[in-house]
Simulated scan of single mutants.
Amino acid sequence: MAELADTVLHALAGVLDPEIRKPITELDMVGGVAVDPSGHATVGVKLTIVGCPAADTIERDVRTATASVPGVTAVTVDVTVMSKEERRALTEKLRGGRASRAQQFGPDSLTRVYAVTSGKGGVGKSTVTANLAVALAERGLRVGIVDADVHGFSIPGILGLTDAEGVAQRPTRVDDMILPPVAYGVKVVSIGMFVDSPSAAVAWRGPMLHRTIQQFLGDVFFGDLDVLLLDLPPGTGDVAISVGQLLPNAEVIVVTTPQPAAADVAERSGVLARQTGQKVIGVIENMAGLPQPDGTVLDLFGSGGGAEVARRLSAGQDEEVPLLASVPLSIPLRAGGDTGAPIVVTDPADAAAVSIRSVADRLATRARGLSGRKLGISVV
């Protein structure tokens, strides 16, 4: 029976906590495994908090994993809650020696950080960010989004992290650590998850905005991400400056429309990024044209704006700033943003989805460099 219990414990290593995305055995969430002579297995599971939103999922997955072990005839899952000391030990383990509230994505981090920005609102920056994140996650990367558009948050709705009334899903708190909700394999945090109504107005000035971004980067546990995307507010205001200060290693993607007036403004967001030490790695032109049944394209917002922004931002630089993609106008793309169903998942053959996925292919192959990075290795 002891040998069978060990086999069950080994099977439980395949059960992941849906929020932390690590095996429950690694998180010390398994209180014990016992199997009686008849093959009845009893598994103790310790949830992080009372009312854990992932409780049903964890219990179901534990039951399924245990029942799959040959020799187990019945399963009982005994669910309890971690003690204060056990939660503290868990948060310390997750931080891996990093101090509480410490920045996770500084210059020593191996995570690729992309700040998605635009000169003006209404260019589809959040829609592009959300779909790009999901496309990267589909390629097996660990991806997170910080919805840094504090005044105009929309990422939770675009990714379906809202209820029928539009209220965003709340993150789980384990002591002073915030666990971000996960949608389509992407970990997400947004100020929209901390307000009482989707119509609530966040009327904050610079210091509060800076503190919010700082907390998102310090208090929210993202784990070891391959890619972190920041959906910045339009323009060159407080949040863009704060991100430049907090994440000087971030690389910037500028989103614009083909309209010359939008392109003029979009260039400024790229210029600000350079002033704060960040590197502009590309431009995405959204709403590039509306395909017609006869195969022609109707340029509702003009043409050439994305290429022009890329040309201007390339001037005087050692490396050319490329036009990463021209995303055509797409009704499914818009509809997916309204219903919380990203087009890269629901309609991958759509021209807009194909264009966004091409950017994901390009970013997914950019390896995380080790030069000058601390690896956390000591010589003994």
Rank of each mutant, 00 (worst) to 15 (best):
A341C: 05
A351Q: 11
L329R: 00
P342E: 02
A335M: 11
T346Y: 12
P328G: 01
A335S: 09
A352H: 00
I331W: 10
R334K: 07
D347R: 13
V344N: 04
P332A: 04
E319V: 15
D338H: 10
A349R: 11
S326A: 15
L324M: 14
V345C: 08
L329S: 00
P328K: 04
A351H: 09
T346K: 14
V344D: 02
L324V: 08
T339G: 03
L324C: 11
L323D: 04
L323R: 07
A341L: 13
V321W: 05
S330T: 09
G337E: 08
I343N: 06
A325L: 10
G340S: 05
P332R: 00
D350L: 09
L324H: 10
A352Y: 03
A353D: 00
D350R: 08
L329C: 06
A353E: 01
L324F: 13
D338V: 12
R334Q: 12
A353H: 07
G336E: 03
P332M: 04
A325W: 05
V344F: 13
R334E: 01
V344W: 13
D350A: 02
V344H: 13
V321C: 01
P348N: 01
P322T: 05
E320L: 15
E320D: 10
G336F: 09
T339H: 11
D350F: 00
A335F: 06
V321Q: 04
T339E: 13
P322E: 07
S326R: 15
I331D: 10
E319S: 14
G337T: 06
A351D: 12
A349L: 12
P348S: 08
A335N: 12
A349W: 07
E319K: 12
A341S: 06
